[in-house]
């Protein structure tokens, strides 16, 4: 089996592929936003107020404020993951959209890059919606929270790239259940979305610390509190590494799948 390991060859037409997805999204905007937001919003409000009423302050803030930073990251990850799994798989495999785009002067690398950036773009929208809710509820007023927006983009690219690896390997939609059961769910529970990671046994803490979501939360949580995150470069570096390695791996696997 030969693998094409060359770096991505991108042309300006990749923007047109991104734009195609935007046009579809504009038609289905309301259900799409609802789908991406309902889940994280109700988790944040329900657990934030419900469990929050039973909880002491964490990090010196009410539980719902603690949960808010986790929810931003969770919503961003969720949105990028769903788009790069189910929607990208539909376009690649079910509707053959990618095949028809490749008959035009657009390369597969352009398509995979555009799909990843599209999933990241959607995830930024989801993250921003949660951020607006946080502002609206008065959970944070810090101007530092604006830094969450570029962070969402980086997270979006990282989680979209990771999901795209699964899409490249998938035979059907059922395959994605493995990804959720074996990676997404453990990651959400081990990365400090709902409770501080320090409450976990050391082994689980170590696993959590290797996962990208925990690094995103280590950046997002101080920003919500109005503080500059510690070890910001380390966390950004880990996220960037997941993004770059994930994207290259996805690209190599999609090339193998569609161009051989």
């Amino acid at each position: 089996m030969r693998l094409d390991l060359t770096p991505p060859r991108l042309t300006p037409s990749c923007f047109q592929v991104w734009r195609r997805n935007l046009l579809v999204w504009r038609k289905l905007m309301v259900p799409s936003l609802l789908g991406n937001l309902a889940d994280p919003t109700f988790y944040m409000l329900g657990l934030g107020f419900g469990i929050g009423a039973l909880m002491p302050a964490i990090d010196g803030v009410p539980y719902i404020t603690f949960l808010a930073a986790g929810t931003i990251c969770y919503a961003t990850m969720n949105s990028a993951t769903f788009e790069a799994l189910y929607s990208a798989f539909s376009r690649m495999h079910v509707q053959r959209t990618w095949d028809s785009i490749m008959n035009a002067p657009v390369g597969l690398d352009d398509i995979v890059f555009a799909e990843t950036m599209w999933a990241a773009s959607k995830s930024v929208l989801s993250g921003i919606a949660i951020l607006l809710l946080i502002w609206l509820l008065g959970l944070s007023h810090s101007p530092l929270t604006l830094w969450l927006i570029p962070l969402m983009l980086l997270m979006g690219v990282a989680f979209a790239s990771m999901a795209m690896v699964m899409t490249a390997l998938a035979g059907s939609y059922d395959f994605f259940m493995y990804y959720f059961s074996l990676l997404v769910t453990p990651m959400v529970l081990l990365s400090g979305v709902f409770y501080p990671i320090s409450a976990l046994p050391p082994l689980l803490q170590q696993v959590g610390a290797a996962l990208p979501l925990s690094h995103a939360i280590d950046l997002a949580r101080p920003l919500v509190y109005g503080r500059v995150p510690e070890d910001a470069l380390l966390h950004l570096g880990v996220l960037a590494l997941y993004a770059i390695v994930g994207f290259m791996l996805a690209l190599i696997l999609v090339r193998r799948r569609l161009l051989e």
């Binding site: 047109q16 195609r20 579809v24 038609k27």
Partner: peptide, 22 residues
């Protein structure tokens, strides 16, 4: 295999495809 974009109208299919050609 037909690979038309089911999310678009007939005219939009042509428009979006034309964009791929710059």
């Amino acid at each position: 295999a037909d690979s038309l974009d089911p999310d678009f109208t007939v005219a939009e299919n042509l428009l979006v495809y034309g964009r791929y050609f710059g």
